[in-house]
Amino acid sequence: MLDVSNLSVRFGDAYALRDASLTVHPGDRIGVVGESGSGKSMLAQALMGMVPESASMSGILKIDGTEMTRATEAQWRALRARRVAMIFQEPLAALNPLRRVGTTVMEPLRTHLGLSRTQARARTLDLFEEVGLPDPEQRLAAYPHELSGGQRQRVLIALALACDPKLLIADEPTTALDAEVAQRITDLLVRLSRDRAMALMIISHDLQVVARATRQLLVMYGGDIVERGETRKILSAPFHPYTRGLLAARPRPQLARPVPGTKRPRLPTIPGHIPALVDLPAGCRFSGRCPAELSRCRTTRSTEFRTGTGLAACHLLNPAERSKS
């Protein structure tokens, strides 16, 4: 339903997203990981047609066969909520504080689907039920500040589902929630994706969430997709040096509870910082921080090569490169 190739988002000469390609089928569950500034949120905004006004989009972005890269705001509006819907990071901030949550969820049902007040109300109750909000009747009249964090996120999910989208993008859906609630929201998203044959894209820096919820994984760095494949396989056998660094930097229980009498091991980190958009190296974005860097990495970008687990954009995988060494 979604076909993206060589999609770029630029601010002048600075790429926030560079030549991203991916295909999404109904029911797919895709995780997108990377640190802040990796372009993962820009990818999500591009798929919603909501990149900042100062940015320019190029490449091909087909939603249900319609090319949308140069679509007008009005054309995008017709797709939002109906084809692609999105939920955001801070559920409290993402809800209008002056509106009852029932009114918020009923709004697209009435304006987009033309339902009457009673129909919209009944539909909202069904949606609240589907996303597991307790006492849906009472929740209709609640204001966002009267709900818990998890309940607010469920309201936002209900809002996103209102017009039956084919793809739900969740941008850091659990970051503002505590661990147990985060897990329940993650499981809810997976269940909804299965029940509705709806594609789900979870953008997160939390590898646990992605491991739990998704089957495919995109690893992003500096606006590039650097590695992709099955989530499970990549997490157990990463190839790209950046993915390896990211996985090594993941906090693990054995790091927190060291063996008595031994020195507490330090959490490995990737040396350096992710550069600003304008300072990114022209070739591989990870060059300069990469432990396995080759001379050409800085200037030339690698195409994607097969790894044991999927695809990765890295010169180390180039057969020509390997025969040289």
Binding site: M48, M50, R77, A78, L79, R80, A81, R82, A85, M86, F88, E90, A93, A94, L95, N96, P97, E107, P108, T111, H112, L156, L159, A160, A162, C163
Partner: peptide, 13 residues
């Protein structure tokens, strides 16, 4: 603010 983005993402005019 975020909720304005939510409203836009909901496809409202």
């Amino acid at each position: 603010l975020d909720f304005v983005r939510t409203a836009r993402a909901t496809g409202l005019s």
